[in-house]
């Protein structure tokens, strides 16, 4: 899932200066799961900002709203009555959500309440770890199901580097060395042979480096004629 964490209150209140009608919009999918933008987090953020507003006389009028999934136009459209009369929206969804709200309500300023971080999974309650770098050309079949692009600090394909010691990455003691894990995974899979052959340079075209990506599933795309025939909001 997409993992994000809240910006510091200081930064958020800095952004909110000069605004009066504020709507905090949370999201019920990924950011709720990583405890960044769910309904409770929206409530906590609302209370904290109301405290700041009364303590420092900011005069903010803060309202809370939830969206099922803030990256879907249909659901963000349901925010319309709540957004009427507000001059800014503090989105506690991931970056995608904030951008969707801004695209649908061009005259209302949308402020990012979260720093969207990565695609990962909860390791245990409260700890979320990056697992996938979205490089567009998966190599898990060569690395025993452990992604070196996302989980090796240097995205090496013929790791480990010289700095891996005690199973930890040189970058930080609590980051396991991906290649150490790859080695042990392939060992238990009995496929250490995969590490013999040097892997040639990777094409980064399908990755973010190739420019913003656009995935098209032709059989679900409505043709121009279908759109004309269907009409309505969709």
């Amino acid at each position: 899932m997409i993992i994000g964490e809240q910006k510091r209150l200081e930064e958020i209140s800095g952004m909110l200066d000069g605004h009066r009608g504020i709507l905090i919009a949370g999201c019920r999918s990924c950011v709720a799961i990583c405890l960044a933008g769910g309904e409770k987090e929206v409530a906590v953020m609302a209370e904290s900002l109301r405290l700041i507003s009364s303590l420092r006389g900011k005069g903010w009028e803060i309202e809370e709203a939830m969206v099922e999934r803030q990256c879907e136009k249909e659901w963000v459209a349901e925010l319309r009555p709540r957004i009427e009369g507000k001059d800014c929206v503090l989105s506690l969804a991931c970056g995608v959500g904030a951008q969707t709200v801004q695209a649908m309500y061009p005259r209302v300023r949308v402020l990012p309440g979260l720093n969207t971080s990565n695609m990962g999974a909860p390791e245990e309650s409260g700890i979320f770890v990056e697992k996938c770098g979205g490089c567009g050309d998966c190599v898990l079949h060569l690395t025993g199901g452990i992604c070196p692009i996302a989980r090796c600090a240097k995205s090496l394909l013929n790791g480990p580097c010289g700095g891996s010691q005690g199973g930890k990455c040189e970058v930080s003691p609590d980051t396991p060395c991906a290649w150490e894990e790859i080695y042990h995974s392939l060992e238990s899979l009995g496929r250490l042979d995969l590490l013999e052959e040097p892997i040639p340079p990777k094409s980064w075209l399908p990755a973010r480096d190739g420019g913003p990506r656009r995935i098209v599933r032709k059989e679900a795309v409505l043709t121009e004629e279908q759109k004309r025939l269907k009409g309505g909001k969709a």
Binding site: K218, E219, A220, T223, E225, Q226, L229, K230
Partner: peptide
């Protein structure tokens, strides 16, 4: 025929599935 579908554009949906 395209443009003559009793369910508005079911045949265009069908065409897409066949292509896939």
């Amino acid at each position: 025929l395209e443009g003559n579908c009793h369910h508005i554009y079911g045949n265009i949906e069908g065409r897409k599935k066949v292509d896939r």
